[in-house]
């Protein structure tokens, strides 16, 4: 089906993304050795989210895909976040 012209991600882009991912991995490992107190979880999760976004956008090609995929993927994330939030309405106030 040639209704969409396919976007070909170059080898260089892939390699640069991998480089970024490895740097972020290094960052998350070294951050554990610094005592950030309650923020260490937040920092680790933020970096993980950043890495996941890179994988999604470039490796999984989401950046160049149709709108419906982007919207529905965001919907999955929003739903999941809301479910965690609502579950914690129980555990935070018990």
């Amino acid at each position: 089906m040639s209704e969409h012209k396919t976007h070909i991600t170059s080898y260089t882009t892939h390699f640069m993304v991998l480089l970024a991912l490895l740097i972020l991995t290094w960052a998350t490992v070294s951050i554990t050795n610094i005592n950030l107190g309650p923020y260490s979880v937040t920092a680790a999760l933020l970096i993980a989210c950043l890495k996941a976004t890179l994988v999604l956008l470039y490796f999984m090609h989401l950046k160049f895909d149709s709108k419906i995929l982007k919207i529905s993927f965001s919907a999955v994330m929003v739903v999941f976040a809301l479910v965690i939030l609502l579950t914690f309405f129980d555990y935070l106030f018990r």
Binding site: V79, V83, L86, F89, D90, L92, F93, R94
Partner: peptide, 22 residues
């Protein structure tokens, strides 16, 4: 409909806040 599940659990011992929200 996805976000109302805990109304099955009002007597389970979950928090009052959750009871209110759900």
């Amino acid at each position: 409909g996805y976000f109302v599940w805990a109304h099955h659990m009002f007597t389970s011992g979950m928090s009052t806040t959750a009871q209110f929200v759900f």
